[in-house]
Design a protein around this nucleic acid. Sequence first.
DNA 1: ACCTGAACACCGTTCAAGT
DNA 2: ACCTGAACACCGTTCAAGT
Lengths: 212, 212
Amino acid sequence: MATRRPVLSRERIIHTALAVIDRDGLDALSMRRLGAELGVDAMAVYYHLPDKAALFDGVVEAVYSEVDVDAAALPGPWPEMLAVYLRRLREVLRRHPHAVAVIATRPAYTASVLGPADRAVGRLREEGLTARSAMEITHACRAFTIGFVLAEVGAPLGGPTRAPREAISPADYPHLVEAMAEGYRPDEQYEAGLRAMLDGFARQQAAAGHVP
Amino acid sequence: MATRRPVLSRERIIHTALAVIDRDGLDALSMRRLGAELGVDAMAVYYHLPDKAALFDGVVEAVYSEVDVDAAALPGPWPEMLAVYLRRLREVLRRHPHAVAVIATRPAYTASVLGPADRAVGRLREEGLTARSAMEITHACRAFTIGFVLAEVGAPLGGPTRAPREAISPADYPHLVEAMAEGYRPDEQYEAGLRAMLDGFARQQAAAGHVP
DNA sequence: ACCTGAACACCGTTCAAGT
DNA sequence: ACCTGAACACCGTTCAAGT
């Protein structure tokens, strides 16, 4: 008789976990639910991953790997290179609204994340930035992007508010009402914020004499 | 005999919940634990709050109320006014590392949050900005601040990684190592990012002719 | 090597009951 | 009005056992 091959793998477990999160939210991901989705006893997962925290780490890495942009290979001056990378990051994060908060808080110190990050910093250095500036700028722009997507699509941690709150009357907030009258345009808003930050950093660099 | 006064109140429940989160983390906050901390049966809380989501909403509002800066009353040109407000926001968020992710994802549509926000937008309008620009700029800077604090002190959602991961060797990431050689200086980094974004927005406004 | 299933100490929420 | 306590359908994790 043929030797049986394993039905589970770290990869399949993690992708199924992300699928459950995307479909039903963070709270819906339990080890038992995950087992059911995989067609195995819930505890089978523990043979492949030590605990739920490790599962989350895998999910974070899986999402980052979707970004799949070799920033270091992009053409153009560094602000444009970073803009391409960051727009792509936003795009990927938007696809996983229920996972963004996890990604925002769990450190991703794995080769697949650090490698591209290191090469990106190297790329900025070739344009005259110090390693420190390169990382600061990247870090700040990533923080803006993650914070923006969190406000944009991030699922409320702890589940949606069900009970009606104290009613708010729009008449009390005339300026907010006017600002929102034209509707919410997240793409333009993100773009404006990204440009502001990159322009600001570019000018800081120029003022410091780091870019000729 | 004296009429008994209630031992619980919405206020006290919410502040105790925040205290538990601050002390032992988000996962430590259960309704039973909260009841124990309050010295009552766990289910007593349900008389004052409909469910755990409402409890989180209360926590978010409590943290925002700590900011307690009337942005509209601050002197100086708008970029400096916003900087004061945002530094204060970062300061408050840093005091509640385990709550930041909740604050970042739960909408806070309450009078105590919307009121100051509306007055702040009104203040920017007096300096020539449109309501729309004023809100965009505020929104972007807040996203940066929250994203930054999340990376800075945000507790990993799902608990800390316990099992050792695949070892990473610093030699593979020379640029990152160099960038971190001087240590991590979050205050300077935040300040640089904030200045970059505000300068960038100020220049966008000037270019659009909105500020004389 | 890989998966199962019972067991333990927990969860959030509902609901009838107490005072 | 305000709080209690049993009950229900869940959790994450450990561990011995199966194949």
